[in-house]
Design a protein around this nucleic acid. Sequence first.
DNA 1: TGCCATCTATGCAGATTTGCATCACCAAGG
DNA 2: CCTTGGTGATGCAAATCTGCATAGATGGCA
Lengths: 290, 290
Amino acid sequence: MNWDDARIFLALCREQTLRGAARVLGVDQATVGRRLASLEHALGATLFLRTSGGYSLTAAGEVAMAAALNMESSAAELQRQILGMDDRMSGVVRVTTTDSFAIDVVIPAIARLHQEQPGIEVQLQASTQMLNLSKREADIAVRTLKPENPDLIVRRVARWSSAIFASAAYVQAHGVPKPGTAFAGHDLVLYQPYLDSGKEVTLGSEPITHGRIAMTCTSGLLVRRALVNGLGIGEIPLPFGAADGLVRLWPARECPPYDIWLVTHKDVRHTARVRVVIDAIAEAFAAVSG
Amino acid sequence: MNWDDARIFLALCREQTLRGAARVLGVDQATVGRRLASLEHALGATLFLRTSGGYSLTAAGEVAMAAALNMESSAAELQRQILGMDDRMSGVVRVTTTDSFAIDVVIPAIARLHQEQPGIEVQLQASTQMLNLSKREADIAVRTLKPENPDLIVRRVARWSSAIFASAAYVQAHGVPKPGTAFAGHDLVLYQPYLDSGKEVTLGSEPITHGRIAMTCTSGLLVRRALVNGLGIGEIPLPFGAADGLVRLWPARECPPYDIWLVTHKDVRHTARVRVVIDAIAEAFAAVSG
DNA sequence: TGCCATCTATGCAGATTTGCATCACCAAGG
DNA sequence: CCTTGGTGATGCAAATCTGCATAGATGGCA
């Protein structure tokens, strides 16, 4: 038995004619007739008498109508609850990003959002590994790499230049490295995945061949904290350098900018609570960038 | 919203995988996936998380499942009640029972009935698990446990004593165990669910502590065949012991009898073709018992 | 009676849905 | 390490369903 036939059956009960039911359902009268025939065949019973002046219920049809009304109220309840649940600004939204973005952008954004939408619970996962949005391991991801998957919706929330920074104490103690000397006599703080990538390693477009590697870090936040503590020179995005009170070296030199992407799965992007979290994060990036 | 999608959704809730649901529904796994997508689109909500190792319900999905279960029971009620109004002596009647009852009682009963009522098609399902009559997974059940559901009509068709039996060959080779020795030096055939029940295990009211368990079986028929093949001593109903040509041991000793119940749903009990199948089975039990 | 309005039934073409085949993925086991 | 058996996704052809057009039926009304 096809449950949807009960829906057609019920419309026909109310309208008494194929055309009337078809009009209510938004289908052709032929379809109503065929679906009814299919239901009657499946049940092995005649539900309507084809009288002149319309369809009228048989005894079996009246019994069926009572049960179909129950189905209808269950179906209506299903839709009502699901729709209500989605409209309500409550529930869990899972966000994954790097620790750096989490601390300086996402957390302030969520803090502000929480004032307006206290029902939304954000589960924030700062991780070096990329969680898989397609598998619903998270609802929203903030990344610096653009994913390829066509099911994922990507939106650029910022384009940040980076530059080399050091703490004021470091500069006072070691001075500013001379461009073109490949950091001879200087301590460097590097991002570990960058070293692992196999590409030629530079800081502020300068090779690092004569510098000492003081520390390598597996996340951007660790690099920033190392710089703040005076361990050496490192390359970080401009907004973070400013936020950390670091000294920008070689302000004239340009570094290639990189983009920050906000990624969601197409299935959840229209969910209201996901939507507002996305907007809050994007706003925060705009504020930090501007 | 297509009501029939709720039926697919419910199957997926129970099976956790597209393939499993597809198997139960008798359609392709691709269809299940697309119908789910259609339902989620219609509701504007994500009902399942696509995790590794299957589909698992979201919070919205759990709400939907509760309502879908209501739809299911209404749909089942509809079918049952319509079937209950059917007074034709033709059509399908589904019977579920154990393999033992099926072979020695139900099949002979149906064979006899078929002479008089060739229009009735019995679908006989021998199964260790109990099918759900309320969901109209079957029309008639023959069981040894009395169900509690007030919507089900139970009728006792037999009260059978059981006793311990062995084949003539076994008795010739091993002799008859001495009462009170807990089957020392004898091979035993046991019913697996009885072992699993946690109760103290006895055969013919005798503890089995000194016997060797030669085999455990998951159905009564398997126990009987094991006995016929001389594997050891086992407890089976008296009529089956006689039918299989086994030797009854300790004929003086009494075993507590157990009842056999014939169960139908109240909505279908008055259906003509269900009625005659019930009567045929009950008659067959009376014949075998008497 | 004749005409018209309204309804249902049905042939047919197009649209939709389905199943099949295949691919990619993952975990367990050898 | 590879194989194997399970999973879900997806392109494509076939089957099914739907809508349209039309024919036939029925009842109201002049």
